[in-house]
Design a protein around this nucleic acid. Structure first.
Lengths: 248, 248
DNA sequence: CGTTCCGGTTGATCTGCGTCAAGGCCGGAA
DNA sequence: TTCCGGCCTTGACGCAGATCAACCGGAACG
């Protein structure tokens, strides 16, 4: 049973910040109009649970702003994050009745929700949505598999470096770079959330961040603001094949 | 550059063993006819590489019989399996030019290949294929996320038990059970492949299998044939929520 | 036949990370 | 101002699993 602030703000899809990246990316104006009829916004505060694993899902949604996480919990309480939801990412699976994971807002969060039934009907009648959703799901699958390599085979240091590189890269695609090869960004996650993401403990996360700092790979300003003086240096610490293609 | 036996056998889609589970599951007879025109079969021997990561992919395919694996390799040589392809599973991503993973046949393997270009055209013109592919991709994503939990948080013993449970469950859905709660099956993977799947070393895999045997959870007959006298006992070793069915 | 190879097992030892514990920093409430 | 509670860091120690190494059994092959 999720408690949440309900906030009805009537946005126009045309002005939507995620208009060109979300499930609706391919929709024509008439299709958008149809979507507008089944959509509503919800806001959540940082830390709130959006959905509990096992809950009945009566909607699917896109993240409009903020960050949410998908986590799984074992019976002994160990937790593993299995997904990080950023603006434009999609939540929920057409055809599934109940949520498979806990969804939690790690920052203040706004979601654009669609009632499930009409959304599913629309999916089968217009191909644009299903096509875009397939594309997005394939990307998520790739990300999940990259994460499997990280979880299964990387050392703690490589895991931290990989996470920082991913966040830095994502931020770089939104903001502009200060200077070639130099980045700065804020961590959107606590040490514990990073640990849950990386399959580590928060102590190990803390130690490895300190180690990377001591070795000059990163610089800290406060607990959360990170500067990367040389991005290539950071990449070398990830254990990934050099290059990884061109960036961004 | 993949070397492979090329084997042209003209099967009729109507007789296909994976007809009702593969991408083509939803297709009408006229759509099947169209697919038949772009399809061809390929056979691979156990151990052969089907595709190398980075290779250009000019086809997508369904596994007809046998088992293949998807693996990723780090620059220092550590390997992580990120997918297990069973009959009816799909290989390749529409819209992607190059393969992201190594695909290897672990048993003798037959694949039903479709030339990529016409397949993609068909995907955009008829909804049945895209719909089915979305469904399958969502299932794969769930499997990948379950695997992330395993890789990130389970102990070696829990990992082995989970793998055995998955294989047993899959076999049980095909064969019939000997007696309620008692299974027997053959491992389709070597100890090293299991290690690559589980993020362990082959020595640890071997030791944990021996330990499960000593504790009476499983019985071995040769290296590969496994009997599970009490499936619930095995499930308890996986560390998963006791039922996996309804909620607490 | 013996030889070699491959997959597997087992033992000895090492080590990276988890665990347990103490304490620091900072912002918000009283 | 002091106190408190989150969040984070650091140290000491132990252990699960990696590493290194020896050996086993069966199949392929001369």
């Amino acid at each position: 049973m999720a408690h949440h602030d309900l906030q009805m703000s009537a946005h126009d899809c045309g002005d939507c910040p995620i208009r060109h990246r979300a499930v609706c990316a391919r929709c024509e104006t008439d299709e958008l109009a149809r979507l507008e009829q089944m959509k509503y916004y919800r806001s959540y505060q940082a830390g709130q649970t959006v959905i509990w694993s096992g809950d009945r899902m009566d909607f699917v949604a896109s993240v409009v702003s903020g960050i949410a996480t998908l986590t799984q919990t074992m019976e002994d309480g160990k937790r593993q994050m299995v997904g990080l939801l950023l603006p434009s990412d999609f939540v929920g699976k057409p055809g599934r009745q109940v949520a498979a994971y806990d969804v939690t807002a790690t920052t203040d969060l706004v979601m654009c929700c669609f009632r499930k039934k009409p959304f599913e009907e629309m999916m089968s009648s217009t191909p644009h949505i299903a096509q875009r959703l397939l594309e997005m799901t394939l990307d998520e699958l790739d990300a999940a598999r990259e994460w499997m390599l990280l979880l299964g085979r990387k050392t703690a240091r490589e895991k931290i470096a990989s996470l920082l590189a991913i966040i830095a890269r994502r931020d770089a695609s939104l903001k502009l770079r200060t200077a070639k090869g130099s980045f700065a960004f804020d961590l959107p996650l606590t040490r514990e959330e990073m640990a849950d993401y990386l399959g580590l403990t928060l102590e190990t996360v803390s130690r490895q961040i300190s180690a990377l700092k001591k070795d000059g790979v990163i610089e800290l300003e406060g607990k959360r603001h990170i500067q990367v003086p040389n991005f290539d240096l950071l990449l070398e610490e990830t254990g990934d094949d050099s290059d990884g293609g061109f960036l961004i």
